[in-house]
Design a protein around this nucleic acid. Structure first.
Ligand SMILES: NC(=O)c1ccc[n+]([C@@H]2O[C@H](COP(=O)([O-])OP(=O)(O)OC[C@H]3O[C@@H](n4cnc5c(N)ncnc54)[C@H](O)[C@@H]3O)[C@@H](O)[C@H]2O)c1
Ligand SMILES: NC(=O)c1ccc[n+]([C@@H]2O[C@H](COP(=O)([O-])OP(=O)(O)OC[C@H]3O[C@@H](n4cnc5c(N)ncnc54)[C@H](O)[C@@H]3O)[C@@H](O)[C@H]2O)c1
Lengths: 218, 218
DNA sequence: CGGACTTTGTGATACAATTCACAACATCTA
DNA sequence: TAGATGTTGTGAATTGTATCACAAAGTCCG
């Protein structure tokens, strides 16, 4: 196949979904899956899955579909999950502690190696074997360990400044829980986790339904 | 303006971002903002903001921009945030408790009115004035109070079945934290909060950088 | 072996979203 | 009043994404 143009970001964002579904298939002991079979599990059309994968190579067999183990290995490799990326967390409050304890993060491809807070009362406490360090150590740890990923769980008002520090120290990817849009240099990847925004986009549809209902029963 | 076609979902998803930014502007005491000014704050082009808003009406003034208070009120009204929507939560574990305590949820447009768990040891405990109820009461509460929004924070293996119960009882919008794609009837709105998937899409770009770096310094 | 099924990978096509570009209007200054 | 500046709202153009549809290749089975 000719792989001229690089895969668009929408495709990259779907790959982890494919990977997760393949892991469930693995757990179920299923060895082969067609694009159609995979698609029905995750509400994506078969054609889209095939086209997405075609950006990276040819992984299927006509008449059969995809070997679950092999396709998963391929996708994890494409996603860089065959290595282990180091990660730091800033802000060990309510949310931060929940993140540290969520085993999901540690499981695949990433490892939390440092947690930071600027509250002197918190510094020194240990959570899941990780001591809370002061902000002063943040840049040094990032730099010395070559950490590339950071999670931001500080109050919105402090998010931008801590991100500036992180980026200056070598962070290249940021998972941001604070409800602010971050300003970062080109090439730094940022993803937002924002349940409130998600909720507020759903209430739109609820309001629409309500309106329609009201206009039908006057 | 002619408002022939309904606004696409991408637009609806951006509105809460505009609203949040306008709230910050309000806090700063700023009374007028141009599409350009708003755009630079949230990394969106001015033209996109104007086009998005044009789906709903004309809110700006040439030469001036938008009145912050008025535009915010308009957007919140469009999003259905002038009413208060009731919400239930299923799964009061680590994550669920963090959600109950996160004041962000209560603040605007939505109110948590019931929390549910199937662990008998948890039922009866009270968190932030809300008693944990057993799953048996879920359908009744949804139905009797007319609850339309649900948050899912149960283990992945239990998510689909509890969602089926919720939808049968009248839930129309679901915020899902469990790492599974849900199957719901047409018309039910689902949003996924999925930090692991977000992380795994970022490692792709890290791996790309690494590859490039390696090929440059052989 | 041959014909009925399946399924992939991918150009071509259709659809969707974003950006461009500009007329129309508003304000300010002198 | 007039000219300079700034901003909106929106058709048209552009860019981006998803779907279609089918040749090619594999399986299955009598
Ligand atoms: N996206 C989500 O799902 C979600 C959920 C809950 C909270 N939040 C957001 O996450 C952030 C944290 O929420 P929380 O409930 O944990 O608040 P919290 O007050 O419990 O915790 C914040 C922590 O950050 C620390 N901190 C403050 N400034 C800091 C700095 N400059 N450097 C390092 N640490 C600093 C504080 O000491 C505290 O421990 C807030 O922005 C909140 O809006 C997001
Ligand atoms: N998206 C995220 O940000 C995020 C973060 C952490 C966890 N998670 C996911 O959220 C879910 C919960 O995670 P957690 O860390 O809180 O786990 P947990 O084990 O601490 O809590 C799960 C809770 O759900 C309850 N439960 C189980 N089955 C139930 C049912 N059928 N009805 C009602 N309650 C039920 C359990 O009793 C328990 O209290 C998991 O699916 C996890 O993968 C998501």
């Amino acid at each position: 196949m000719e792989r001229l143009d690089l895969p668009p970001d929408v495709v990259i964002r779907r790959l982890p979904l494919y990977a997760r579904s393949l892991r469930y298939l693995q757990d179920e002991g299923i060895q082969f899956i067609s694009s159609h079979g995979l698609g029905t599990r995750i509400n994506v059309t078969a054609a889209q899955i095939r086209k997405d994968l075609s950006y990276f190579g040819e992984f299927g067999k006509q008449g059969i579909g995809y070997n679950v183990n092999k396709l998963l290995a391929h996708i994890e490799h494409i996603l860089g999950l065959s290595k282990e990326w180091l990660m730091v967390l800033a802000g060990v409050g309510h949310l931060g502690q929940a993140i540290v304890r969520y085993e999901g993060f540690g499981s695949r491809g990433v490892r939390l190696v440092g947690i930071f807070d600027n509250d002197p009362a918190k510094v020194g406490q240990v959570i899941e074997d990780l001591p809370i360090l002061p902000d002063e150590d943040l840049a040094r740890v990032i730099h010395e360990l070559g950490v590339k990923i950071a999670v931001v769980a500080v109050p919105a008002s402090h998010a931008q400044s801590i991100v500036d520090t992180m980026v200056a120290a070598g962070i290249r990817a940021i998972l941001n829980y604070a409800p602010v849009v971050l300003r970062v240099p080109d090439g730094i990847c940022v993803r937002y986790i924002d349940p409130i925004t998600a909720l507020h986009s759903m209430t739109y549809y609820l309001a629409q339904e309500e309106d329609k209902r009201r206009s039908q029963t006057p």
